[in-house]
Nucleic acid binder design. Structure first.
Lengths: 161, 161
DNA sequence: GAAATTCGTACCGAAACAGTCCTGTTTTAG
DNA sequence: CTAAAACAGGACTGTTTCGGTACGAATTTC
């Protein structure tokens, strides 16, 4: 469904919250409380984001997390890539002869194109843009798809295209 | 991972194959053979595409499938939407007070934006463009992500962004 | 040195996905 | 008019991934 995982969903909420409070040093319980997200997940995601270099972590008693860079310099593409795994694009079978019953499989090369288009779209949106509500305003297009999710789903993904 | 399902993957291969042979009327076993895809899946997907109005089906002995419209008039966005389910975009919890601990959750409205960007990218690519190899050529950026998939994976998704 | 906090990893249940099969219904061919 | 070919629509199952949890280790502050 061209959907992102809940992890990424949560991650963006957390990053947005941090971007909105750049002066504060927030730890996992604080972030969980302020975003109304389950603490264990928050903790897990923060670890991931820190390892990927998007967050700077400080251990110890007065530890916590902060953005590693300014919110303007972090793109949605980066965040999603960090939370979803390594940067892999089109993966055909590398074994020749399975896919290429035609001398040159035309489908494959064009996946690159789609990826590039989608990626460009995501790279064009910075984290800082998520902190202030969009001028256009949200037109209530929300047609919830596959039955409401459990408990909290603060930001909740794009499920279809 | 912003990944599409295998169904959609297969579906695009099938549609591309049909777009490349607009004069022919192909049935499920033929398509399965020519695309090297498993027949049961092919059959399943063709049914879905026909129901969604992207394919025109003809029953009976000399039956088969053909594109319902010209390949230029079918966008990637349409295909994906048809195969992945209904058009749902950003789904926040509709219950006020959970998500909106801030008077107006800033994250939510901006998901619309991301969706719009991605959708626009996909709407800009027509099925007809998938039939001929891209001029620029595929630069081999293929870093296969989570271990090769089983058996056949002809076109195989964009896994990360 | 003790307390608080991040870090790493391993684990489990539930849901979604990939794939298969079976039983109809429609159409052409002989 | 009968039979075969092909689509139509579910129901079913195994596997993977995701969401969520738990615990011990490392690190910093007081």
């Amino acid at each position: 469904m061209i959907r992102i995982t809940k992890q990424t969903d949560y991650g963006i909420v957390l990053l947005t919250h941090l971007a909105a409070n750049p002066e504060r040093q927030l730890n996992a319980p604080e972030l969980a409380a302020e975003t109304r997200l389950p603490l264990p997940m928050v903790s897990k995601i923060l670890k991931l984001l820190a390892r990927e270099g998007l967050l700077a972590s400080h251990r110890g008693v007065k530890g916590g997390y902060g953005l590693a860079r300014h919110a303007e310099e972090i793109s949605m593409a980066e965040i999603i890539a960090a939370l979803e795994g390594p940067i892999a694009i089109t993966e055909c079978v590398s074994v020749e002869g399975d896919c290429s019953h035609e001398p040159l499989c035309p489908v494959r090369s064009n996946w690159q194109r789609i990826n590039t288009a989608v990626r460009a779209a995501l790279e064009g949106i910075a984290l800082s843009e998520m902190t202030h509500a969009k001028p256009g305003g949200p037109q209530g297009l929300v047609t919830l798809g596959s039955g409401g999710r459990a408990a909290f789903t603060p930001a909740a993904a794009f499920q279809e295209v």
